[in-house]
């Protein structure tokens, strides 16, 4: 009985990918503003099986994503130091002012939603991302480069409600202030450029268009009409930016939804989740903690992690370990990254409680892996994060372990390089 309160017994098969899509999930809760949310690489993905990627590749791309997130902080500081005040680089000199860094925005752990753009509406499968602000899609005529995507590439010439933004408009100036965005001008037409590292970017026209989700539509939605798009976008048509900036989808639809949204990510790629805008659509079990901001990283959603428990044991980790660098919540990062002091404590306790199982070699950034070849059912310690106000996130079993086969399933957490990161 004691173990039932601190551990979960689970079928190994529930952790491994399935070839079939279980569409049953939350569709019963669907409302006008709730969208299906699918894993980019699973059998439910509208992008199809061609986009499937191995766990090792996903983890490598996840490293790139985290490097990019960390570089956002150092880039901001660099620019501020050079100019003496906060300043965003122009598109024309972005190569000088934004250091080239490893990393790509779009890792393989991303989720897809479908929106409609233009008049008549064209469906587009976009990556849903709380870690960036700009919504963009590939646009005809793809003047420089468009990657392969599932949907027909959006053609502004076939929409009755599309218009480019001119350089003289104030919105063009302000778009250049979006974190990570550079702006430019070509023949009086406003250009945007979003550069995520040394591999992923989108450059094109800043435009205004009608966008629809479910039965709701919004005129004059500002988005990037990409003419040069390169990166690990895996068949998607672009990105839906759900960050905090004034040009994010969340801010541009604030008049209707009041900057209120929620989501549920499915436990496996074989299930469907949901993304809801506006109040409602979530369970009454939800408990709230404070959403924090960091002035140097204004796009991101920060939370106040104060502790972690493993198998019902609250670990002794000084609160300052979490508070010194802060913690952001991101839909685009796969594996949580913790201060190394905190991760070391979790790993030690997890290994102790999992000592009946055989450790095996590391999987990329995951260093606590087990060979469960001889098991069909295993017992796993419950892992919980505790936030300010006593709110607890009891991680689902699918969020404690990660792997591609029974021979190598790992603790799905990793440490940062330094407690100050």
């Amino acid at each position: 009985r004691g173990e039932a309160e601190t551990h979960r017994s689970l079928l190994l098969s529930s952790l491994l990918p399935s070839a079939a899509c279980d569409k049953a999930s939350p569709t019963g809760l669907k409302t006008a503003t709730t969208l299906d949310l699918t894993h980019k690489h699973g059998p439910c993905s509208p992008l199809g099986p061609k986009s499937q990627t191995s766990p090792a590749q996903i983890l490598q791309q996840d490293k790139d994503r985290v490097n990019w997130l960390h570089s956002r902080l150092t880039t901001t500081i660099d620019v501020e130091r050079r100019s003496g005040r906060k300043k965003r680089p122009r598109l024309s000199d972005s190569a000088v002012t934004v250091p080239a860094r490893d990393g790509s925005l779009v890792s393989s752990g991303n989720f897809i939603v479908t929106v409609n753009l233009g008049t008549p509406p064209r469906p587009l499968n976009l990556i849903f991302d709380t870690g960036s602000d700009v919504t963009w899609t590939q646009c005809q005529p793809c003047a420089k480069f468009c990657h392969k995507q599932l949907d027909p590439i959006f053609d502004p010439a076939k929409s009755a409600t599309y218009s480019n933004v001119s350089c003289e408009q104030a919105v063009c100036q302000r778009y250049g202030d979006v974190p990570g965005v550079s702006r430019g001008c070509s023949a009086s037409t406003c250009l945007y450029g979003i550069q995520y590292g040394d591999k992923s970017f989108s450059v094109g026209f800043l435009a205004k268009e009608k966008i629809a989700i479910g039965r709701d539509s919004f005129d004059d939605f500002y988005f990037g009409c990409g003419q040069n798009n390169l990166g690990l976008f895996g068949g998607s048509a672009g990105l839906l930016g759900l960050g905090r900036d004034e040009f994010s989808f969340v801010s541009q639809t604030a008049s209707k939804y009041g900057k209120f949204f929620s989501y549920c990510l499915p436990s496996t790629p074989s299930n469907v989740g949901k993304l809801t805008f506006g109040k409602g659509g979530y369970s009454n079990r939800v408990k709230f903690t404070s959403l924090l901001t960091k002035p140097e990283l204004p796009s991101f959603y920060f939370v106040d992690v104060v502790g972690v428990s493993v198998g019902g044991k609250k670990l002794t980790i000084p609160a300052s370990i979490f508070s010194s660098a802060g913690t952001l919540i991101d839909s685009g990062t796969v594996i949580s990254r913790l201060p190394p002091t905190a991760y070391a404590a979790i790993r030690a306790e997890f290994r102790k409680q999992m000592s009946r199982y055989k450790l095996t070699e590391a999987l990329s950034l995951l260093d606590t892996c087990y060979d469960f070849s001889n098991f069909t059912t295993i017992s796993v310690p419950k892992v919980s994060f505790v936030f300010g106000g006593g709110v607890e996130l009891a991680v689902a079993p699918a969020g404690v372990l990660y792997g591609g086969s029974k021979k190598q399933i790992c603790l799905a957490l990793a440490g940062n390089g330094d407690d100050g990161d």
């Binding site: 209120f260 952001l328 991101d330 594996i335």
Partner: peptide
């Protein structure tokens, strides 16, 4: 910074009340 990734968010209702400055978690959302 530390990052709370999407694997740990799976099956949770994650609720953003940006204007109200609150973030909610609830188990068993999907």
């Amino acid at each position: 910074v530390a990052i709370l990734g999407n694997v740990q968010q799976m099956t949770q209702d994650v609720v953003y009340d940006v204007a109200g400055g609150k973030l909610g978690f609830g188990s068993g959302g999907c």
